[in-house]
Design a binder for these strands. Structure first.
Lengths: 311, 311
DNA sequence: ATGAGGGCATAAGCTGGAGTTATGGGCAGG
DNA sequence: CCTGCCCATAACTCCAGCTTATGCCCTCAT
């Protein structure tokens, strides 16, 4: 028994076991239903399970967290104060899960979909799932398919008639396509709040930025290319990491300043885990564009998605 | 068998069953490990499970999503393009889960904790979990406890010596406490991108806002109170809903304009599911403050947390 | 060329958690 | 007082995920 126990002396354990400390998505969904409906039985009915199942599931979630979440009474259940908080936090997980679901569904629905989207990686990663969630509220029964690739691949799909609408980032628009600017991907300089740059009065000079070792993605990544171009190939790495998340984690931990896409650090900025440092004389911006074959203005679901993406 | 099947004629199904369409957190954690390490076996070792378990779990995730995620070869596994995308989306869920975990742990760790925080609901809901995650990277072994309540309760705890640091929002600071402004909770007017207000040239006048029916939280909610005060008790409801999420969903769906805390809609704004409408002559802002008993300037972990929260 | 090693897959068996049905006890309102 | 809604407990079932035991594939160094 417990065969797992063998040999865990100096296990690294970076953030491992999170899944064991956090209730699973089903339990959270149930908790949200209880919060909304004010009754275990009601929530159970809504999710298509029985009342005892709901009762036991909530109870084991309370055991796992070590916190009482609901006040049960003979005429209903209400959240405790702690329960309300936990429910709010759970809601944010479920929102991320909804975006995941919308995206995953689009990756799968190849052929028979009514709206075929081709998008560059950055957009597909950060923006598209949110758009799809929004679109779903407007057109619940429209199947969407997604193909992610670089600008050239997006153009190819559109011109071959294999996609209805495309999204690319960058300075130039592939030939044969019309486009509309829908936003900007700005690279920003960020540091942990404790770093000296977080309190400087005047904006950072480009030369200063180029002279300072930064936490960066590896050479070859899109972000790195834009930065190198803007600085004239001068970006000086303090550490090179292979994922945006790793870079963010290092920056949050105070290892040094970094340059990241605004899209990647929205959450960190609003919670002040990272602070944006104004930069004086470099513009690190790329346009985000919706694209379609010249002349074939988007119609139907494509038009609807397009209108979601710009003001 | 399959007793669940009974009687589901006109089931409401608002967004039900999400948990069945999305892999569970353990599977995502595994996927992230595979992405990072480039091998199923390696990921398995890191999570303390066996290689066949990892293999089968990834495979069933691929079945569930209907998408191939990893390219298995006799010398390792790499993510497919779709897999990279899915992994990025999963990472966002895991980040939310990490915040959840940090918060939940603080709710539980009552007595023996080294840093006891008291916070108002808005801050505890939106900001604190992120701070705790950041703090964890700096002080991994510091137990933190959290007590959430209104301003009066926060003050009481601090003055009784039962909390080391507090956070409140609002215009006045409770007596007996020193404070530092760490941010602002601004209410902003938002609409779906398709709404006429999303394209107006000039900012909205207060009178115009007061005259337009809005999607709002129910009377008595904090947000509603601030809005009513700023407008002179005039806010006119189009729909009244009992949770911020419901309000957001209605606004995203295009039901009408709404007024929400900036903190609540960060994600929706960056993905352009909602658009912020500038307002001319009303300031809907409250300060967010860190507070502590007069004279007892925070030290140790409390000081560290405080420095995380402000620039 | 050949054996060692890392990596993945398949097969068979075990276990625990989540689900089910069945039943009982509190509290409100006609 | 009884009907209805709410929740809890008990006993049983079932499956997802785990383990161990094997085997095949490929690469690299001897």
């Amino acid at each position: 028994m417990g065969g797992t126990e063998a040999g865990q002396e100096g296990r690294p354990r970076p953030a491992a076991g999170l899944a064991h400390r956090v209730p699973d998505l089903g339990a959270m969904e149930l908790l949200l239903a209880v919060a909304r409906l004010g009754s275990l039985g009601g929530a159970a009915r809504e999710l298509g399970i029985t009342q005892p199942a709901a009762s036991s599931r909530i109870r084991s979630m309370e055991r796992q967290l070590g916190v009482a979440l609901v006040d049960r009474s003979p005429r209903g259940s209400r959240l405790t104060d702690a329960g309300a908080l936990v429910t709010d936090w759970a809601r944010r997980i479920m929102e991320a899960a909804e975006a995941f679901d919308a995206g995953a569904q689009a990756l799968r629905d190849r052929r028979d979909s009514r709206l075929r989207v081709a998008a560059s990686m950055t957009i597909a990663e950060y923006l598209l799932p949110g758009w799809l969630v929004a679109l779903r509220t407007q057109l619940p029964d429209t199947a969407v398919s997604l193909l992610a690739g670089n600008s050239a691949a997006v153009a190819e799909r559109l011109l071959a008639g294999e996609a209805d609408l495309g999204f690319v980032e960058g300075v130039s628009v592939p030939t044969g396509l019309d486009s509309a600017v829908i936003g900007h991907d700005r690279l920003i300089v960020v540091t942990a709040p404790g770093h000296p740059w977080a309190r400087r009065g005047r904006p950072l000079e480009a030369a200063e930025l180029a002279a300072t070792p930064l936490i960066l993605r590896e050479k070859g990544s899109g972000t790195r290319q834009v930065l190198d171009a803007a600085l004239g190939g001068l970006a000086r790495p303090l550490i090179e990491l292979s994922s945006t998340t790793a870079v963010k984690a290092a920056a949050v931990g105070g290892a040094g300043p970094s340059v990241l896409s605004e899209l990647a650090v929205g959450e960190e900025l609003t919670t002040r885990r990272l602070v944006s440092v104004p930069v004086a004389d470099v513009v690190l911006a790329r346009d985000l564009r919706a694209v379609w074959p010249t002349g074939h203005r988007p119609t139907g679901p494509a038009r609807q998605l397009l209108s979601l993406t710009r003001a």
